[in-house]
Nucleic acid binder design. Structure first.
Length: 456
RNA sequence: GUGGAUGUAGCUUAGUUGGUCAGAGCGCCAGAUUGUGGCUCUGGAGGUCGCCGGUUCGAAUCCGGUCUUCCACCCCA
């Protein structure tokens, strides 16, 4: 019985047209990364599970794809381990590797492993797929590309500022209007501290992160439901509901955080960043958003999130500062900050906004009609001339009906067709047809290269 | 991981008291047009109605399971 071919759920094939569009996104991002002095890096698809586990919270651990050991994976597993209802013990024994969940943790691992070869501060970019065993939904895949830029080994807020400029540059080039939201973990910790519930930081962070989505009442209910004291919830509510300009809200916060050293440090950092930003305002909207709490467990300072305005597709870029990430791998005192562009979601946004429409997706610029053996020498000569001019060209491989060859050019969006049959060969000429206009020009073979170079 | 929908030709889909129900449009292929594509016309090929099992004389249609895709939650790019 013939099986219907399929691919694992949450994964996708990319057709030629799709790859071309995706490369346009990668190319744009890469160009900006290079402009700011970032160097390329690639790491393996799989990492040792021990470097991945525990970096993304307990939820994240569940979403890791684990790779079953090759060979007899049950070798050395005892009967009691097989019977143990806590499968995590068994799992860690039969799976030693996992697929990378993001690019930041492998990067941190790389930095620690190669610390003696690296000149700090180290600025690298990395564009590779990552895998998450999430339940797929629209805009959420199990295999997707991240485009990361990180600076490691520098505390300066200039790095944060630079990343914001990169975000602004990339989305300007892609012609996607975005809103950049900024917050700082230190401010959030300060608020939680001032409310007297610092022990419950991550739960509270997750809850207030949903504020713009579910509203204040639902957040209050969630917090109270989790056993946070009413008085603390009220206190949090008051500060979260403050409105006004970026600067105005920071002023109010200062008063609230007067007794929290961490909180004051956070505000100070945020003010420095806005001073830098306002000295040369970017085209994107930059908002200080106290309710932005998301980010992986390892973020400790600035948090950045970018959403495209006018489309409901979730966050298309995110990042932040992490002070302790390399500490887990044994290298203390190195601070990093980075951002990650979600290429697949950017692709979806561009599709919705028809941002690809100006992008040519043709396989080549010229198709040379194949008339048969007699004319083949001449056709090959034309091909060589075009290639030497750097023009992408191909000969139709079979000498089938001319009409079919034109239809081929048409369906592949090839803009020019070169016809060279008996008549043209006699006069050392060719006929060039412009497919979009339908017009034809007959010129000598010597002029062909220059003629087509000038056509766009 | 929890809850809810969905699944008919390559694509979009019509099709309920279960009995000519396997249809349409687009696309594809061929011809009209043997040195010229897009438009038009004519003809043609393509479907175990997601998969497995059950109920029934009989199921695309009812039931159970399973997979897929989509939506909400969780979390996140």
């Amino acid at each position: 019985m013939a099986l219907k071919p399929s691919i694992p759920k949450g994964t996708r094939d990319f057709s030629p047209a799709e790859v071309l569009k995706r490369d346009y996104i990668f190319g744009t991002i890469k160009e900006v990364f290079k402009l700011y002095g970032f160097q390329p890096l690639e790491t393996p698809a799989m990492e040792n599970l021990s470097t991945l586990l525990g970096k993304y919270g307990t939820e994240g651990d569940k979403l890791l794809f684990r790779i079953l050991n090759s060979g007899d994976f049950l070798e050395g597993v005892s009967e009691s381990e097989l019977q143990n209802p806590d499968h995590s013990v068994l799992s860690s024994k039969i799976c030693e590797k996992g697929l990378r969940y993001d690019l930041t943790v492998p990067f941190a691992r790389y930095v620690v492993q190669h610390r003696n070869e690296i000149t700090f501060p180290f600025k690298r970019y990395q564009i590779q797929p990552v895998w998450r065993a999430d339940k797929p939904q629209k805009g959420r895949y199990r295999e997707f590309y991240q485009c990361d830029a990180d600076i490691i080994g520098s505390d300066s807020l200039l790095n944060e500022y630079e990343l914001i400029r990169i975000i602004d540059d990339v989305f300007s080039k892609l012609n996607i209007p975005v809103a950049v939201r900024l917050n700082n973990r230190k401010i959030l910790m300060g608020i939680v501290e001032a409310a007297g519930v610092s022990g419950r930081f991550s739960e509270i962070a997750v809850a207030i992160d949903k504020l713009d989505k579910v509203g204040m009442q639902a957040v209050e209910e969630e917090l109270v439901g989790k056993g946070i004291p009413r008085s603390a919830v009220e206190s949090l509510k008051n500060i979260l509901e403050v409105e006004g300009s970026n600067a105005g809200r920071m002023e109010k916060l200062k008063q609230f955080l007067v007794n929290s050293e961490t909180g004051k440090k956070g505000i100070e950092e945020m003010e420095t960043m806005f001073r830098l930003i306002n000295s040369d305002p970017p085209s994107s909207e930059i908002v200080f958003d106290l309710t932005l709490a998301r980010g992986l467990d390892y973020y400790t300072g600035t948090i950045i999130e970018v959403k495209a305005t006018g489309v409901n597709i979730g966050s298309i870029c995110g990042g932040g500062r992490y002070d302790n990430l390399t500490g887990i791998f044994g290298l203390e005192g190195v601070s990093g900050v980075g951002i990650s562009f979600g290429a697949d979601r950017i692709y979806d946004v561009l599709t919705l906004k028809e941002g690809f429409s100006s992008l040519g997706t043709s396989a080549s610029k010229v198709l040379i009609v194949n008339f048969g053996d007699t004319e083949l020498q001449y056709a090959l000569r034309i091909l060589k001339i075009l290639h030497s001019h750097g023009i992408s060209a191909q000969i139709y491989p079979d000498a089938i009906k001319i009409g079919k060859q034109f239809a081929y050019a048409n369906s592949l969006n090839i803009p020019y067709v070169v016809v060279a049959g008996e008549d043209e060969i006699k006069g050392s000429e060719v006929t060039v047809k412009n497919m979009a206009e339908g017009s034809q020009t007959r010129i000598s073979i010597e002029k062909l290269g220059d003629f087509l170079t000038m056509q766009t």
